[in-house]
Every structure is written in structure tokens, then in C-alpha cells.
């Protein structure tokens, strides 16, 4: 009896390992990694793809843009992912790593835009901010309020201190931690845009400028609220004076509780972001490993599904989830590039 149990256990372990090795030699599903911002859109496409195409549903991991590209560029072969999502464009350094590791053909697909909103509870009035206000309220070091051309630690406590037109409320902003792509984009689009309004800051050398524009204050006015955007929405409801930073889709889903702040006079609405009027919006991408097309079944079909009008078009199911579609011509260009598998060239 005991012997049987032992033999049984050994058999199960053996079968497990051999089947694992078999599975490894032939993966029959697409493996996708990458940005947590693209994740909600890529998952919808993957699900539709799995239900309609007859291929297995791709697996999607939310690793962040940087983490995704690292995994993606690690090499060619079934143990490496086929596609990575990114909420920013691939960097030259990442592209070079890819080339070094034998990942030669990379197909870039831009899928649309995402707006980053600063929102507050509906219980208080909407904020009318400019990028300059945002920079002055959130940067660690700001230009001296007395007008002298030097940087001082951020002295502002209330929005009124920043700009007399704003309400006399304490500056409390809940936002994502430094590991988040949303934070990167927010800093790049909103804070940098604000920093450029000061001529001498703009004329600082490149490194100094980045350090000034990209460093968020650490004295408690900016609260790192973790990667969970639902949590930020809940906290905004509790504290009507606080502002939160997150992607447009969360504003879209919670429009009865929170409202987006105006930035440079434009409210974060679907139409304003699509038209390019809202300043804090960024393009979203995914990258496909050319060498895997054909060896992993279904990659070309997945590309087709993603770039179909019913998915990323103006009335497509992705726009229902909060993705801001590209203009018609851009869509056409990227769709044809994706379908003909044109590899990306970076100088």
C-alpha cells in the first residue's frame, strides 16, 4: 500500500515534468506582457480574439512598460513573450538591447491615446488649472516667488498660494508611485510643460531641467497612493479637497462621483483628448516580435483583431473601455504597417 502511494507520487511528478518540457517546446498561445495602462485594452482584444478566432486566448501580464520591454528584449524563443504593451515609445537603449539579443524585427503598433486626468470629488467645484500651476504646486523645487532667478524648496501650502485665482484649499494630490508609467507620463506632459513656462528654468542645461521638472515634492502634499486607481477614487470621495491623478478610463467609469480638472482651459473629455486639445495625453503602443509570427499560432490574427475598426475605431469596443482612438489617417497607416509586418527602424 505504502509503496503504491510512493510510486504514484513519483509518477505524477514525472508526468508533470515531462509534460512541462513538451509544453515548453511548443507554446500554442500568445504571451503578452507590458504596461498596466494598456492592460485594460489589450485584455479586451485578447478576450474577443480568443472567443471568435478559434485560437487560444493570449495570456497578458501587467508588468509595466519598462519591465515588459526588458522581458520582450531578452531573446527569441518560446520562453520569451511575443508582444509587449507600452504606454510610451520604445527607447533607443531598449531597442539596442533587443538587437543585441537577436530580437531583430520589431513591429510597432500605435493603438490610440490615453488622457491623464487630475480629478476631484463632485462635492467641490471643478479646478481650473494650468500646467504652470501643476508644476508650481507639485515640484520639489520651484522658482523663487520673489522673482529672483533661483530655485527654492516648494513653499506653497494652498492652491491660492500658487495662483490667486484658485480656491484657498490645502494642496493634497493623490497619485501613482514612481514605478508607474502614468507617473512618468504625468511628469513629462504636465510638469515639464509647466516648467517650460519659466524662461530661465527652460534654459537650464538638459539634466538640471529634467531634475527640476521631474522631481515631485516629498513634504506630504503629494501622496503616493499605490497603483490601484480605484483606491484613489474612493479616497477622493472621502476628501473633497484632494485631487487625484489617474487614467481617463477611471474618470469615465466614475463620472457620478468625480470630475476632471480643466488643464489650460480644456476639460478632459473624450472629444477633447481625441482632438488633441487636452494637453496631458499620451500615445499607447504595443510591440510585436517579428521572429515569432508564424511560429506561435495566431499572432497575425491578433494583430488583425486589434487593428480592426470594430476594435480601435471611433465606435469600436475599445473606445467603450476608454481608449481614445487615433485620427482616421493615422489608424489606416498603423493598420497597414501592422498587417504587412513592417519592422521598426530607430536611428
Amino acid at each position: 500500500m505504502k509503496k503504491l502511494v510512493v510510486i504514484g507520487i513519483a509518477l505524477i511528478a514525472l508526468v508533470g515534468f515531462t509534460s512541462a518540457l513538451q509544453a515548453q517546446s511548443a507554446r500554442d498561445y500568445i504571451s503578452i506582457v507590458g504596461s498596466s495602462t494598456v492592460y485594460p485594452f489589450a485584455t479586451v482584444v485578447a478576450e474577443q480574439f480568443g472567443k471568435t478566432s478559434g485560437f487560444k486566448t493570449p495570456t497578458i501580464e501587467s508588468t509595466g512598460s519598462g519591465g515588459g520591454l526588458k522581458l520582450f528584449c531578452a531573446g527569441v524563443g518560446v520562453e520569451h513573450p511575443d508582444i509587449t504593451n507600452a504606454s510610451r515609445r520604445i527607447k533607443k537603449s531598449e531597442f539596442d538591447t533587443c538587437q543585441q539579443n537577436g530580437v531583430k524585427d520589431i513591429i510597432e503598433v500605435k493603438i490610440g491615446y490615453d488622457g491623464i486626468v487630475m480629478a476631484n470629488s463632485k462635492k467641490s467645484a471643478p479646478m481650473k488649472l494650468t500646467r504652470k500651476d501643476i508644476f508650481m504646486a507639485l515640484a520639489k523645487d520651484v522658482p523663487d516667488p520673489s522673482g529672483a532667478e533661483k530655485l527654492v524648496p516648494n513653499p506653497y501650502k494652498t492652491w491660492k498660494d500658487v495662483n490667486p485665482d484658485l480656491p484657498d484649499k490645502k494642496i493634497v494630490v493623490l497619485g501613482p508611485p514612481p514605478t508607474s508609467g502614468t507617473r512618468d507620463a504625468f511628469v513629462e506632459l504636465a510638469m515639464e510643460g509647466g516648467a517650460k513656462k519659466f524662461d530661465y528654468v527652460k534654459n537650464l542645461d538638459k539634466k538640471m531641467f529634467k531634475a527640476t521638472a521631474h522631481t515631485i515634492r516629498e513634504d506630504g502634499a503629494y501622496v503616493e497612493a499605490g497603483e490601484n486607481d480605484n483606491l484613489i477614487v474612493q479616497k477622493l470621495e472621502k476628501d473633497p479637497d484632494a485631487l487625484g491623478i489617474f487614467g481617463f478610463s477611471f474618470l469615465d467609469q466614475n463620472a457620478d462621483k468625480i470630475q476632471g480638472s480643466f488643464v489650460d482651459g480644456v476639460a478632459p473629455t473624450f472629444d477633447a483628448i481625441a482632438a488633441g486639445d487636452y494637453p496631458v495625453s499620451r500615445p499607447l503602443y504595443f510591440y510585436v516580435k517579428g521572429a515569432h509570427v508564424g511560429s506561435i499560432p495566431g499572432i497575425d490574427a491578433y494583430l488583425k483583431e486589434f487593428t480592426a475598426e470594430k476594435a480601435w475605431g471611433e465606435d469600436g469596443y475599445l473606445s467603450d473601455k476608454g481608449l481614445i482612438p487615433m485620427p482616421d489617417e493615422e489608424r489606416k497607416k498603423f493598420a497597414s504597417d501592422a498587417r504587412s509586418l513592417n519592422p521598426l527602424m530607430l536611428q
Binding site: 512541462a20 486566448t57 501587467s62
Partner: peptide
């Protein structure tokens, strides 16, 4: 190890995602 992922298909074995 990649188990925090969006997976639709119900796994049918020890090596399915």
C-alpha cells in the same frame, strides 16, 4: 513567475497558463 496575468481559458493541466 507570471501567474499574475489575465487568463481567460480555464486551465486543463499543470502546464496550461
Amino acid at each position: 513567475i507570471g501567474m499574475v496575468a489575465f487568463i481567460v481559458d480555464i486551465p486543463g493541466g499543470f502546464t496550461d497558463p
